[in-house]
Design a protein around this nucleic acid. Structure first.
Lengths: 127, 127
DNA sequence: CTAGGACCTGACGCCGACGTCAGGGTCAAG
DNA sequence: CTTGACCCTGACGTCGGCGTCAGGTCCTAG
């Protein structure tokens, strides 16, 4: 499939796909005329890349992680990196959970205030 | 307390605090000489701002959310925004969880390979 | 009174992950 | 063979969240 279809299926822009290739994150075969052609698996790969970006990893970190998806092989160094990134993601998860809960607090406090404006007003900003 | 102490306690840079003020996220009283002075609550506020940033909200979104922390009052519009942002955070949480699990898959597959390199190698890249 | 550490206001720099524009080639259908 | 959709390679633009430097002020201790 060509780049436009990959873009559509994976939900990212054509420009982004070319950027990924530029960064060494995504490979393509070329037609005689120079156009990129991708295997079906590229779509999932792109989605995974997006996930890693969303998890706060930069393209360098992604570049360090992706090879083991290709080979299924894990050097000591790779394993360390993967574990380190896993830890980072886990930490992010916990922070995010706390933030969500805090948002819930604010929402609840506001609703309580709306129900009874004379009640104790301020919501806790406590950490 | 002055800006340096707030910075230290909240774990962000002095520059960042001035930036927050510039964006209308954080208020300070000024000494006669022009130096910023903060209430103790500023530290928690700053941490919360950081959390919201980490949750992927831009300063505009944060600016829309913070007022209700100050007043404890919730207009219809504010409530909608809060709920919307909560939903976004929740979605992020779920994506992140999936990403973490996928990382675990990769790690496990790699370890299995190391234990027995002749075993079925590739790990799943499936969405 | 003086030193030196903390603070002030601009204002420019940076970096990643693309957006966007220009100018031109490719390719399948009719 | 032509058309029109899709694709190509540069190369510059953007935007947020600060970092950093310059040149000057404040304030507290001794």
């Amino acid at each position: 499939m060509r780049i436009g279809e990959v873009a559509q299926r994976s939900g990212v822009s054509v420009r982004a796909l070319r950027y990924y290739e530029e960064q060494g994150l995504l490979h393509s075969e070329r037609s005689p005329g120079g156009q990129r052609h991708y295997a079906d698996a590229a779509v999932d790969r792109v989605r995974f890349i997006q996930n890693l970006y969303a998890a706060g990893l930069g393209s360098k970190a992604v570049l360090r992680i992706l090879p083991c998806m290709d080979h299924g092989v894990l050097t000591d160094e790779m394993q360390d990196r993967l574990l380190a990134e896993r830890a980072r993601v886990q930490a992010q998860l916990e922070e995010l959970t706390a933030t969500r809960d805090k948002l819930d607090d604010v929402i609840r406090a506001g609703q309580a205030y709306r129900a009874d404006p004379s009640a104790p007003a301020r919501c806790a900003v406590a950490s």
